[in-house]
């Protein structure tokens, strides 16, 4: 296992992540000379030991996992990074021309208003792993993986016995997801994903034909990687694959996060109205 890991992409990515430089957070905060007391540099965790295993011999992904390298939540932006784009670059989404044109026409405010999160909707699949700054807890037993997301207090149960998809699944934020093992990698395959979810925060919408494949690996005790491939023949010209994204083991209990005081939709709608009004005024002035 160790020999295999040494040559793996995950190993290289992990090496680079563990060696990130001093954070920008060490610099002045918000233009003030005084350094905030909670602007602490994140400390990356070492491997911590070998990969734990389930009774059936497969890797055990159980644990509370935080994005980035520290095993905790931090204001240190460098410590929250999940991959090094120099080592494992991610290509832009390969949009079909009509989809690219639709997204190009959006403004920054449109991006905000379209986010599932701004609307207090679940981030769904794959947002819960690609767009989730909060910890998740995995509870792994032979035959199933349970993912508990602190964000919006939602969860999913992934059977890992290699079963087939439901032949007629209802669309949902979590979709219809099934898992299978490829060596020490758990491959989670999801279809029937609710079209209200986006794959990024800049307008990457998807169709009812979206197909998401997540690959979970745990190279050691403290580190978990999740790599995502997205196929969408109605929106993309070819599949898109993420870098292996790093999560690091923490020891905190998940907390409550219900979205009950959401003021953004109202405020951003007012901003959109203001921008639209200013655009009309500009056009009118130009045409005179």
């Amino acid at each position: 296992m160790w020999r295999g890991f040494c040559g793996s992409l995950s190993g290289l990515a992990l090496a680079c992540i563990l060696s990130y430089p001093a954070s920008a957070q060490d610099k002045k905060a918000a233009g003030k000379e005084e350094r905030p007391v909670n602007a602490k540099k994140g400390v990356p965790l070492p491997p911590g030991g070998p990969t734990p295993r389930l009774p059936d011999g497969h890797p055990d992904f159980s644990g509370v996992w935080f994005e980035g390298s520290t095993g905790g939540q931090t204001f240190d932006a460098a410590a929250r990074k999940q991959f090094d784009p120099k080592v494992t670059p991610e290509e832009p989404p390969p949009y079909q021309p009509w989809a690219a044109a639709k997204i190009k026409a959006m403004t920054g405010t449109d991006y905000e208003l379209g986010r599932a999160s701004v609307n207090c909707l679940p981030r769904g699949v794959p947002g819960m792993v690609l767009l989730n700054p909060y910890p998740l807890q995995l509870v792994h037993t032979p035959g199933q993986l349970v993912q508990l997301n602190e964000l919006n207090n939602n969860w999913r149960v992934i059977p890992t016995d290699g079963r087939a998809h439901d032949p007629d699944p209802d669309p949902g934020f979590l979709g219809d997801e099934v898992g299978r093992w490829e060596g020490d990698t758990l491959v989670v395959d999801t279809i029937a994903i609710d079209e209200r979810t986006w794959n990024d925060f800049k307008g990457w919408f998807h169709s009812d034909q979206e197909h998401v494949i997540e690959r979970f690996t745990r190279p050691d005790l403290n580190h978990l990687f999740i790599q995502v491939t997205i196929e969408d023949p109605k929106v993309l010209t070819k599949p898109w694959t993420s870098a292996p994204r790093l999560w690091t083991r923490g020891h905190e209990k998940l907390q409550e996060y219900f979205c009950t005081n959401n003021q953004e939709v109202d405020q951003l709608t007012k901003l959109k109205d203001k921008e639209t009004s200013e655009k009309r005024t500009t056009k009118s002035t130009v045409s005179k």
Binding site: I17, E67, A77, V118, N132
Partner: peptide, 10 residues
């Protein structure tokens, strides 16, 4: 690392 944004609620 190059700057890669980490995403928030908004």
């Amino acid at each position: 690392f190059l700057a890669v944004p980490s995403y928030a609620h908004h």
